[in-house]
């Protein structure tokens, strides 16, 4: 019984660490300031945009396909990339540090600069509502 309650405790504390897409998006919107209101439509436009900064990775869709609900493929290595949308991959948008790491890396590579907190909030709003 003691064993069971320990497992329950670990499960609960593990769940407490994970965040929801809403929480992660809200944190980015707050960081943007000025009462920023994220919209999924702006996030969708950003996802579809051709930045043409990187020759091998001109757009998000180069590796992630046109739909975040689909598995993608890394443009250089060929490795399969799990879907970005939480509806297809529940691990997505649950770990703020991981989300920020990939924004930092991929914005620099694909967009050619760091993304603003507002852009990240929009992107998260878009992914969260993909069905």
């Amino acid at each position: 019984m003691k064993h069971l309650s320990l497992i329950a405790l670990i499960a609960v504390s593990g769940a407490a660490l994970a965040e929801t897409p809403r929480q992660i998006g809200d944190a980015y919107a707050a960081a943007q300031g000025g009462g920023y209101r994220a919209t999924a439509a702006r996030g969708a436009e950003f996802f579809a945009r051709k930045f043409n900064v990187s020759e091998k990775m001109p757009a998000c869709s180069t590796c992630h396909t046109d739909s975040p609900a689909q598995a993608g493929r890394h443009a250089i290595t060929g490795k399969t990339i799990k879907p970005l949308a939480p509806v297809a991959n529940s691990e997505r948008l649950s770990d703020p540090a991981k989300v920020e790491k990939w924004f930092t890396r991929n914005c620099k590579e694909v967009v050619g600069r760091e993304c603003s907190a507002g852009e990240k909030a929009d992107f998260v709003a878009f992914l969260a509502e993909v069905r």
Binding site: R73, H74, I76, T77, G78, K79, T80
Partner: peptide, 11 residues
Amino acid sequence: KRIGSAANCAA
């Protein structure tokens, strides 16, 4: 395309 590169060992 399904292999993509020599670095894609798991393909």
